[in-house]
Computed example of a mutant assay.
Amino acid sequence: MTSTSASAAAMDGIYRYQRHAYDLTRRYYLLGRNELITILQPPPGGSVLEIGCGTARNLVLTARQYPEARLYGLDISAEMLKSAEATLRRNGLEARVTLAQGDATRFDAEALFGQSHFDRVFCSYSLSMIPGWETALQHAGASVRPGGELHVVDFGGQNDLPVWFGRGLRNWLARFHVTPRERLQDAMSAIASEMGGTLSFRSIYRDYARLGSIRLTD
Score class of each variant (00 low, 15 high):
47 S>I: 07
69 A>S: 14
13 G>H: 06
53 C>Y: 12
120 R>Y: 12
61 L>D: 14
158 Q>D: 00
93 L>W: 02
124 S>A: 15
50 E>C: 01
87 T>R: 09
28 Y>D: 01
104 A>Q: 07
199 L>R: 11
54 G>H: 13
77 S>G: 04
107 F>D: 12
70 R>K: 10
153 V>Q: 06
108 D>Y: 09
208 Y>P: 13
31 L>N: 05
145 R>F: 12
201 F>P: 02
59 L>P: 06
27 R>N: 05
182 E>C: 07
31 L>P: 08
165 F>R: 06
198 T>N: 10
47 S>W: 01
169 L>C: 06
44 P>F: 03
192 A>D: 05
187 A>G: 13
77 S>K: 06
158 Q>N: 08
65 Q>E: 07
60 V>F: 05
83 S>L: 08
64 R>Y: 10
58 N>P: 08
18 Q>E: 02
215 R>P: 09
118 F>Y: 09
7 S>D: 13
94 E>Q: 14
103 D>Y: 02
2 T>F: 08
6 A>M: 05
97 V>S: 00
142 A>K: 01
34 N>M: 05
18 Q>T: 01
146 P>Q: 06
178 V>S: 09
139 H>M: 03
159 N>C: 04
120 R>K: 11
87 T>M: 12
114 G>D: 11
70 R>V: 11
55 T>H: 14
167 R>C: 15
31 L>R: 06
26 R>K: 07
37 I>T: 04
149 E>N: 03
196 G>I: 12
10 A>G: 04
22 Y>N: 04
122 F>P: 14
66 Y>L: 05
13 G>Q: 09
154 D>V: 11
120 R>N: 11
88 L>G: 01
133 W>K: 09
177 H>S: 14
198 T>C: 10
144 V>N: 01
27 R>C: 00
60 V>G: 02
75 D>Y: 07
18 Q>K: 11
124 S>K: 15
79 E>W: 03
175 R>N: 10
202 R>E: 00
18 Q>N: 09
116 S>N: 13
21 A>C: 03
134 E>Q: 15
132 G>F: 07
180 P>C: 13
95 A>L: 13
160 D>S: 09
71 L>W: 02
155 F>V: 04
169 L>Q: 02
110 E>L: 14
56 A>R: 00
107 F>K: 04
1 M>Y: 06
203 S>N: 10
124 S>L: 14
95 A>S: 11
12 D>K: 02
79 E>A: 13
64 R>S: 10
69 A>E: 03
154 D>F: 14
203 S>T: 11
211 L>P: 02
185 Q>W: 14
197 G>T: 06
119 D>V: 02
39 I>Q: 10
208 Y>F: 12
50 E>Q: 02
4 T>W: 03
21 A>K: 03
196 G>T: 06
195 M>D: 13
127 L>N: 08
195 M>L: 13
198 T>A: 10
130 I>M: 08
187 A>M: 08
37 I>G: 10
18 Q>Y: 14
186 D>W: 14
176 F>V: 01
215 R>C: 10
50 E>H: 00
177 H>Y: 13
63 A>Y: 01
214 I>H: 04
211 L>W: 03
215 R>K: 14
156 G>K: 05
182 E>F: 13
181 R>Q: 12
80 M>E: 00
73 G>S: 11
180 P>W: 04
170 R>A: 12
148 G>Q: 02
150 L>R: 00
105 T>V: 07
115 Q>F: 01
128 S>I: 15
148 G>M: 08
182 E>I: 15
